[in-house]
Design a protein around this nucleic acid. Structure first.
Length: 197
DNA sequence: GTCCGGATCACT
DNA sequence: GTGATCCGGACA
């Protein structure tokens, strides 16, 4: 299993976004168990993009990691109850990241009880759900993506998987950029791509 | 200090 | 469409 190194992330977010599809997100839980999920949905955000927290270089303490060097996590809290986890991309000093929107868990995490009627492959279908089930919160903000921090990305198992490309979810500006990528047809995608979108 | 909006989700 | 729920940023 190859851990993607920091240099792998040193490319524009709109390159890393699709490149992450088919790779594996790995997380070591507090009890030591390692949970893995196939990355099936991402979005890209950059400093030149009005939907980005770092648009126009608006750096604040909470957004520091977004402007930092590639290969680190940028985790923020929103809507009073959800965390969202990004992978910082490109170069130091430039706000750029890929939002991890959905993974397909390869196994049910220990201790997680499947709610009646819910499907295991959709436990992490959505950025908030992904963070909840993997135990990702702001304590990981700015952390390097290595096994030492408990959050990292491994290469594969898919290479050049079939992609669907759509506008991003939940934004009001920058909607013209098709910067959301999904593993085409995968059940863990949070919102299926519609034809013509 | 107050005020407000938000890269969500589950439910109706 | 709506509510839950709270942090960060803007302004004073």
């Amino acid at each position: 299993m190859t851990v993607l190194p920091p240099a792998w992330y040193a490319r524009p977010a709109e390159v890393i976004g699709p490149a992450l599809i088919g790779q594996t997100l790995a997380r070591r839980l507090p009890n030591g168990e390692i949970v893995r999920g196939l990355i099936v949905e991402t979005e890209a955000y950059t400093q030149d993009d009005p939907a980005c927290h770092g648009y126009g270089g608006r750096i604040t303490p909470a957004r520091q990691a977004l402007f930092g060097p590639p290969g680190h996590a940028y985790v923020y809290f929103t809507y009073g109850m959800h965390h969202c986890c990004n992978v910082v991309t490109d170069r130091d000093g430039f706000a750029s990241a890929a939002l991890l929107r959905a993974v397909a868990l390869t196994a049910l995490p220990p201790g997680v009880v499947l709610p009646a009627g819910s499907k295991p492959e959709r436990l992490a279908a959505g950025p908030g759900k992904l963070c909840r089930v993997l135990g990702i919160d702001r304590s990981l903000n700015g952390a390097p993506l290595t096994p030492a921090t408990g959050l990292w990305v491994e290469a594969g198992p898919l290479s050049a998987p079939p992609l669907a490309q759509t506008p991003r979810i939940g934004i009001t500006r920058g909607t013209e950029f098709l910067w959301r990528w999904c593993l085409a047809g995968h059940p863990a995608v949070s919102r299926p791509a519609r034809p013509g979108l």
